[in-house]
Design a protein around this nucleic acid. Sequence first.
DNA 1: GATGAATGAGCGTTCATTCAT
DNA 2: AATGAATGAACGCTCATTCAT
Lengths: 220, 220, 220, 220
Amino acid sequence: MSGHIGKTKESILEAAVELFTSKGFKGTTIRDIAGRAKVNPANISYYYHGKQGLLEACLISFFEPYLSLLEEEKRKIDWEDPEICLHRAIRKVLVFQSEQHLLSRLVWREITIDSQVAREIIASYLMQERYYFKALTSAAMGGKSPSLPVSMLIIQLKGMLTAPFLNSQYISEVWGMHPKESYFIEKYYESIIEWLQTALHVQKNALYIARPPAPVIRTV
Amino acid sequence: MSGHIGKTKESILEAAVELFTSKGFKGTTIRDIAGRAKVNPANISYYYHGKQGLLEACLISFFEPYLSLLEEEKRKIDWEDPEICLHRAIRKVLVFQSEQHLLSRLVWREITIDSQVAREIIASYLMQERYYFKALTSAAMGGKSPSLPVSMLIIQLKGMLTAPFLNSQYISEVWGMHPKESYFIEKYYESIIEWLQTALHVQKNALYIARPPAPVIRTV
Amino acid sequence: MSGHIGKTKESILEAAVELFTSKGFKGTTIRDIAGRAKVNPANISYYYHGKQGLLEACLISFFEPYLSLLEEEKRKIDWEDPEICLHRAIRKVLVFQSEQHLLSRLVWREITIDSQVAREIIASYLMQERYYFKALTSAAMGGKSPSLPVSMLIIQLKGMLTAPFLNSQYISEVWGMHPKESYFIEKYYESIIEWLQTALHVQKNALYIARPPAPVIRTV
Amino acid sequence: MSGHIGKTKESILEAAVELFTSKGFKGTTIRDIAGRAKVNPANISYYYHGKQGLLEACLISFFEPYLSLLEEEKRKIDWEDPEICLHRAIRKVLVFQSEQHLLSRLVWREITIDSQVAREIIASYLMQERYYFKALTSAAMGGKSPSLPVSMLIIQLKGMLTAPFLNSQYISEVWGMHPKESYFIEKYYESIIEWLQTALHVQKNALYIARPPAPVIRTV
DNA sequence: GATGAATGAGCGTTCATTCAT
DNA sequence: AATGAATGAACGCTCATTCAT
């Protein structure tokens, strides 16, 4: 089969992204992957040092361009308006995830599993991401003290950025929307920016007036 | 072993939640579970009709109180301020997830896998959730037209509500915060309400002035 | 299959001895063993922790009685004629190997492979064997200084004791004799004792007279 | 890689001897061999018709000079003292095995495995060896009737000749001696000759006097 | 002569599950 | 109610070998 120029390696990676995404890493067998990629199962070990190595290749193929993207915007904050840089970074992240929506879902889900697999790789990438987000956000705030710690602001931003891709089938099944479509990205970008404006600039107590006190609740 | 009266069934479920959460459903073996619960593996099939049945029991033990909680607040919107009901629902959801943080992580992750397992159960629960959120949000908005469709607002809210629990180890490892602690819940609740105020009440164009036009970006 | 009282474990060991002996450890598959023992392959991992554990069980089932035997004779040298004890030990070793000729062939061959498998087990047993042989031989020699170092004498004895079992199919194919038959054991025992008499008692130079000087030879 | 003129074929054989010896035929992969020989794995099939053919080449490279050596001494018994020829043959065999100690270990071990591999080759070589040993021994005995059948005498001699090489790592690990060193060969040669003198010349009953009757023993 | 991509068979092992007790 | 022996399917992976280049 195949035999032609080395598209075997590529087709394995493509098939792996699709299957890991939909069935999970553990739920996917290398025979599934080989079958979809129409190659011999042994090639997976040959090219990627086994199933685990294939997952790592998936993670790398996501994080490398993802972090490049953040790095690029971080570099610009010295001579451009930092807030614009942050906005552009947000937009780029959305677009990138939209284009790589399968890979995005795979990555953001898989890192919620406490696996020794690829733990160091992931940890390293997440630390870089943290650095870039901190730099961008701090610069965008200027010297102002935010109503909440920066860390929590970033956690929230991260949640907003990844949620629609992580839960993409929830969104399409339940709400009939498609996170990979440009209309969704457009609207979603707007709403994130809207939230960001408030979070970055509004004085802490300004909006608190109308809000009722948070009730003490026991649910269980 | 065990010997006492029917603690077997309960201890199986506890062990399953812990292990499914940390290692994933597919990554957990029934011998893992039986080992942690100090029970014979055959009892799992006996009590829960196999591993799948055990997962379903986990899902049910999450969704039943979760939906009860939403249903309760939805009922109140007829004689209480709907916005307060929505705020209280949000708070209750956060507290509930905090108390059941392992189970929450398990549920929100597992539904991102396209598994035939428990598909109908999950779909049914999510439709109920959708109904309650729609009712609460619509009521809270009164008659005002929001700057974004309600569906997107809810998608965003859902993302904010689940993200910290789904990514709890990310938050603790990278940011040193713990989503199950009351301080986090408190601050996080505040920031969600802050966002909600803006999203519900602010006129669409009010905040758009300062924002630069979204650049058209190709990343790949 | 089987289902009856636990003869599964035993039949696995029997089949393993036969097949490891004739085809070698690496050349035997667990499906071979399971097939011959008429049990399910999974039982091998279940009872013996895998193929390697099965080999270890084989080694142990050889060395334990083998060393008990040596230990028994070693204990007797304090109140019996040590030379008789040594003779009896030799005889017992031959009879034991004859009765366990498959296992003997397996063990003595397998320890010639530099495998990390069961290396510690084997090393420990061989050290015990060394101790018993040294004690028996030294006692049998009384105070006399042998024509050769004791170590070499034991090495030679060991070689004589194991050779016919290690090369049993060579002996039967090439010479038509069967090392497991009592006639062979009888004759072989006699010849070893004959050699031992000379080695232990004869003065070093007594027999050297007739011997021509060893020529210096280069073969390659 | 390699690049030089046909050293490829030779280096494969060298690597094969080393690895087959230490890890066993089945325990060695052709990639191991190719790796050590710094050669492409495909060359092994190219030059030796596969792994089996490589083993056969090893066997041949041992037996050809080995049998030449025996044949040479056998030819000399017509005009030299046959006993001297036998002694010289023994010495040459020891020296040859010492020089080819890896190959010797490999060969003598591998023929204890009932493999269809190279069965005919080995059988043929062993029959030749048998012929030469019989001729040499019979001639050395003159017309005297030995205390034991010639066949048994040769079996014993064979055992003594091969044992130290077959168990070379046992000897070095347990006894700290090295069968490939000339000191060992020297001493070992002497002790074999000593034994041979007795076995060939001593009257059957001469040494039997002091020996106690062999006890009847059941070990299992 | 030498390479590296590719293959198919089969390896040891793990797994959820069943069933007699 | 609870156990442990036993099963069959399928897992990830390694292997010797082939073949176009």
